[in-house]
Simulated assay, not measured.
Amino acid sequence: MGGILKRFSDIMSANINALLDKAEDPAKMIDQYMRNLESDLGKVKAETASVMAEESRSKRLVDECNDEIAKMQTYAEKAVVAGNDADARQFLTKKSQLVEKQASLAHAYSMAAANAGKMKEMHDKLCKDIDELRERKETIKAKVAVARTQETLNKIGESVAGAQDNLSAFDKMEAKADRMLDEANAMAELNKTAEQADLDDLAKKYDTQASPGVEDELAEMKAKLGLK
């Protein structure tokens, strides 16, 4: 009995919050704690039933002994009334033996009752812890799930931030490429303009014709008018 009382003394001081604070994974810890408590509760129930049975047996023995003491007292009185002192002495001797036995039985009953009280206390404490854990189990798991989701979002956010940095670098490269293309197009346009100017000058060389002299033009005009 002493061993099981010592083993379950730790259960009496168990603190669910303290256990969860130390847990790396509260969701798994709370499931494990629940299994441990239910296993302990089954053992405590069995031991409590045994101790309570011992308490009942001890109480019955005390009651039976008290009944026998009362009977011996009654028989002794009847023997005295009947004038049979020798019989009365025998009844009183038996009563004396029963009184000594009753003291021993009462002591055993007292210990059995104390043990039963301790076991009942532990049983009630375990039941209370299990009820509390059942009520909080899903809430705690939900909080853990939210926390893990937030951690995932935080990691994704860090990745997105890194991607944004990469996009920014690509934007800079694209802007540089656009600038290079614009400069190349501008240079091509300038080259085209210079080449066209040269061609125009060359064409003017062949398009230019000598202007007729004033005298030739005057003679041609007179000819048309029929003048000499």
Rank of each mutant, 00 (worst) to 15 (best):
R179P: 11
K172Q: 10
Y75R: 01
L225Y: 10
N191S: 13
R136D: 04
Y75P: 03
L19E: 11
M72Y: 05
S56T: 08
S50H: 10
A113K: 09
I130N: 03
V146W: 05
A14N: 05
Q97T: 03
K143M: 11
V99C: 05
H123D: 09
T74W: 15
A210V: 01
R136C: 06
A49H: 13
D182L: 00
D21G: 09
L199R: 14
K95L: 02
G226A: 01
M187T: 07
L227N: 04
G213C: 10
L190Y: 14
E68P: 09
I4H: 14
T152A: 11
R148K: 09
P26C: 02
D85V: 02
G226Y: 04
A79Q: 02
K43L: 14
A194P: 13
E135K: 05
A197F: 14
K45E: 07
D40S: 06
I4P: 05
L225C: 01
D182T: 01
L105D: 00
S58Q: 04
F91L: 05
A194F: 15
A142Y: 10
L190A: 08
Y33M: 08
D87W: 07
A223F: 08
A76I: 00
L37V: 04
D67V: 07
A14Y: 11
A113C: 13
D31E: 08
D165I: 06
Y109R: 00
E132C: 10
Q150C: 11
K59V: 11
E158K: 06
V44K: 00
V80S: 15
A161H: 12
G157A: 03
A23K: 02
S9Q: 05
L133Q: 04
E217S: 08
E217Q: 10
P26E: 01
E100M: 11
A23Q: 00
T93A: 11
D129V: 11
M119F: 13
L225I: 00
E189N: 13
N191R: 03
R148H: 11
M72L: 04
A27K: 02
D182Q: 02
K78D: 13
E77G: 03
R148V: 05
R60M: 15
E77F: 11
L19G: 07
A76W: 07
E138Y: 05
L41V: 09
